[in-house]
Every structure is written in structure tokens, then in C-alpha cells.
Computed example of a mutant assay.
Amino acid sequence: MNLALWIIAGLLAATFLASGVLKLTQSQEKLAAAAPFGGAGLMRLVGVLEILATAGLILPAALGIAEVLVPVAAVGAAVLMAGAVTFHLRRREAQGVVVTLVLLALAVVVAWGRFGPQSFTS
């Protein structure tokens, strides 16, 4: 179970890192077109949050410092994905909703596992 949680956290971290870097490096025009009701500023904020989620999912456990931050980061990622589901539903993007729901489910699994049976503190 511990290995599975590490793999899931790694996949989530890789996905959030790629998405966050993309959001932070795209032009203002592209970001504004992608989120007309939130604008480029909102998309950049989401990019920063995704990169923070990447760090929170991996670094505390890998370094052995404040490991409780791993499930906290997973909860934050789940909240972020819940907002993304709403975003994609408003835009009627079925594929975006499905991908985001998968990421949401994976983040919930990591949060459950790291707060519960495979906690770093037990």
C-alpha cells in the first residue's frame, strides 16, 4: 500500500508540475482565452498552486521533514481539482471533467492513505 501511495503521489506530482509550468509560461493572451471569466491572473494563481502541490506531495516525505504536509497537500490538490471540475463543467468540456475527476480521486486516495493506514507518523 505504501508503494502504491508513493506511485500515485508521484504521478500526481508530475501531472501538477507539467500543468503548473505550462500555466506559468504561457502568454497572457493564451491564458486569458483559456479562462475568459477568470482571466490570466487566475490561471497563473492555479499554476502556482499546482507547483506547490507538487512540492507538498513529494518533498516532505522524501526529506523526512514535516511529513504531515503530504496528506495536507493531497487535500489541497483535491480542493483545487474540485474547482477545476466546476471550471470544465461551465465550459462544457467533457474530457476535461473526466481527467480532472480522475486526478481528484487520486488526490483523495493519497489523502486518505497518508492520514490513515499508511501515515508517516504511525
Rank of each mutant, 00 (worst) to 15 (best):
P36C: 12
E29Q: 10
R92L: 13
L42M: 12
M43H: 09
V109A: 12
K23S: 05
L80T: 03
V85W: 02
A55S: 09
G64D: 09
A34C: 04
T54N: 00
V48A: 13
H88W: 13
I65N: 08
F37E: 10
Q95F: 14
V97R: 11
G47P: 03
L104Q: 09
G56C: 08
T100D: 07
G64V: 00
P60D: 04
T54L: 08
G83S: 01
G96F: 09
K23N: 13
G76W: 01
L69A: 10
V79W: 02
G83D: 07
S27E: 07
A84Q: 03
T86W: 12
A82P: 00
P71H: 03
A33E: 14
L45K: 15
Q26G: 10
I58L: 13
G39V: 08
V109G: 01
L57P: 04
G56Q: 12
T86R: 11
G47T: 01
V99T: 13
E67T: 15
A94Q: 12
L42W: 13
A53F: 02
Q26W: 08
A35N: 14
A32L: 02
P36R: 11
L103G: 12
M43T: 14
A77G: 08
G47Y: 02
L89V: 14
G83K: 04
L103S: 08
A53R: 00
G47Q: 04
G41I: 05
G56F: 07
A77H: 08
A78I: 09
E67D: 14
G83Y: 05
